[in-house]
Design a protein around this nucleic acid. Sequence first.
DNA 1: CTGATGATATACT
DNA 2: GTATATCATCAGA
Length: 213
Amino acid sequence: MIATPDRTPLPREFFDRPVLEVAPELLGRILVRTTPDGPIALRLTEVEAYDGQNDPGSHAYRGRTPRNAVMFGAPGHVYVYFTYGMWHCMNLVCGPEGRAAAVLLRAGEIIEGAELARTRRLSARNDKELAKGPARLATALDVDRAQDGVDACTAGDTPLRMLTGTPVPSDQVRNGPRTGVSGEGAVHPWRFWVADDPTVSPYRAHVPRRRRT
DNA sequence: CTGATGATATACT
DNA sequence: GTATATCATCAGA
C-alpha cells in the first residue's frame, strides 16, 4: 500500500543544519506553490547542494551581492536567481544565518495542479518533463525574482511552502557530480536524486561556450 | 541519438 | 570584454 504524504510543514530547524545533511533529506518532500488559480504541488526528485563557505561553484563564494543576499539570511527561505538571460532557478537556504549555503531544486514530479503547470510549460511533451530541470521547475511553478526571499516555513498566506511529504529512504538516494559546474567545484558529488525516477533531469557535464562571432 | 546555436542578466576581469 | 547552478530548436547521423 502507498502511504499518504504528510502535509505538515517542514520546521525551520530542518533547514538549520549543514547543507550536505539537508539536501538528500529533501528528496520526496513536497513543495506547494499557491497561485491565484490554485495550488501546484511538486514532489522533489533531484537537488544539488551549494556551500558558500568553501565552494567555488556557489554564487555566494565571492561574497554578498544584490543577487545572492538572501543566501546570507535565515534558513528556510527561498533564493531565486535569474541566469543565462532567460531563466529562473530556485533554492532553499540552509544552515545558520551568515553561512550562505543553499540547495538548488533541480527536478520533481507535479502531483497536484498539473493543468496549471502545463499552461506555463507548453513545450513539455509529457507531464514528466514539466519540472525536469531547474529552470523548467521554476517555470512550471511560476517562480521568479518576485519570490526571492519568501519564507517557505511559515503557515500563513505564503506563496511557497515546504511540506514533510514522504522522505525517500537513504538506499534509494543516488549522488554524483553537479550539473554544469566548472573548475574545482565540479569534483564534489553534491547532486542527489531518487534512483530510477523518470522525472530526474539528464546529467550534462559543464562545457564552456565558444564566444559569438 | 548527438552537437551547435541563440536567448542575454548578472558578476567579474 | 568573458563566463555561467539552462533550455528549445534545429541539422545531421
